[in-house]
Simulated assay, not measured.
Amino acid sequence: MQLNDKVAVLTGAGSGIGRALALALAERGCHLALADINAAALAETAQQARAVGVRASEHVLDVAKREQIAALPQAVMAEHGQVDLLINNAGVALGGDFHQVSEADFDWLMAINFDAVVCMTRAFLPLLKQRPVARLVNISSLFGLITPAGQSAYCASKFAVRGFSNALRLELRGSPVGVTVVHPGGVATSIATSARLADDISKQDAARNLERAQRLLRMPPSKAAAIILRGIERDKARVLVGNDARLLAWLERLMPTNYWRLLPGLAREPERQP
Rank of each mutant, 00 (worst) to 15 (best):
Ser175His: 08
Gly163Cys: 05
Ala188Asn: 04
Lys203Cys: 05
Asn209Glu: 07
Leu172His: 08
Asp205Asn: 13
His183Trp: 13
Asn209Thr: 11
Glu171Met: 08
Val177Thr: 12
Leu172Lys: 03
Arg169Val: 15
Ala167Cys: 13
Gly174Ala: 13
Leu210Phe: 14
Ala192Met: 04
Ala206Glu: 04
Thr180Met: 07
Ala198Glu: 06
Leu197Arg: 04
Lys203Gln: 09
Thr180Pro: 02
Asp200Ala: 00
Pro176Val: 15
Arg173Leu: 15
Leu197Asn: 05
Ile191Ser: 09
Gln204Met: 04
Ala192Val: 06
Gly174Leu: 10
Ser165Glu: 11
Leu210Glu: 11
Thr180Ile: 10
Gly163Asn: 07
Leu168Glu: 12
Gly178Ser: 11
Thr193Ser: 12
Ile201Ala: 00
Arg196Trp: 11
Arg196Val: 14
Leu172Tyr: 09
Phe164Cys: 11
Gly185Leu: 14
Ser175Val: 13
Phe164His: 14
Ala188Asp: 01
Ile191Met: 06
Thr189Ala: 02
Asp199Arg: 02
Arg173Cys: 12
Val187Glu: 07
Ala198Asp: 04
Gly186Ser: 11
Gly178Thr: 15
Ser190Phe: 00
Glu211Tyr: 15
Ala207Gln: 13
Ala195Ser: 07
Val181Leu: 05
Ser194Asp: 13
Arg173Ile: 15
Ala213Glu: 05
Gly185Glu: 12
Arg169Leu: 14
Glu171Asn: 08
Thr193Glu: 11
Thr180Trp: 10
Ser175Asn: 10
Arg208Lys: 07
Ala207His: 10
Asn166Ser: 05
Leu168His: 11
Val182Ser: 09
Leu172Arg: 05
Ala192Asp: 05
Glu171Ala: 08
Ser190Leu: 01
Val181Gln: 05
Arg212Gln: 01
Ala198Ser: 09
Ala206Met: 01
Glu211Trp: 13
Ala198Met: 10
Gly185Ile: 14
Gly185Val: 14
Ile191Glu: 00
Thr189Gly: 02
Gly186Thr: 11
Leu197Cys: 03
Ala188Leu: 01
Ser194Met: 10
Asp205Thr: 14
Ile201Thr: 02
Ala167Trp: 07
Val187Asp: 07
Leu197Lys: 01
Ala188Cys: 00
Ser202Tyr: 02
Gly185Gln: 14
Thr180Arg: 07
Gly186Phe: 08
Ser190Tyr: 00
Arg169Tyr: 13
Gly178Pro: 11
Ile201Gly: 00
Ala213Thr: 05
Glu171Ser: 03
Val179Lys: 10
Gly178Cys: 04
Thr189Arg: 03
Gly178Ile: 07
Gly174Pro: 15
Ala167Thr: 13
Asp205Glu: 15
Arg173Ser: 14
Asp205Val: 15
Ala206Gln: 01
Asn209Phe: 15
Gly186Met: 09
Arg169Trp: 15
Asn209Leu: 15
Asn166Gly: 06
Ala195Thr: 02
Arg169Phe: 09
Ala192Trp: 04
Lys203Met: 02
Val182Pro: 03
Ser175Ile: 11
Val179Ser: 08
Leu197Gln: 03
Gly174Tyr: 03
Asp199Asn: 04
Leu170Gly: 07
Ala192Glu: 02
Ala206Trp: 00
Ile191His: 01
Ala207Asn: 10
His183Glu: 02
Ile191Thr: 10
Gln204Ala: 11
Asp199Met: 04
Ser194Arg: 06
Asn166Gln: 13
Glu171Thr: 12
Leu172Trp: 09
Val179Gly: 10
Val179Trp: 13
Gly185Ser: 14
Asp205Arg: 10
Val181Pro: 02
Ser202Asn: 03
Val187Asn: 06
Gly186Gln: 06
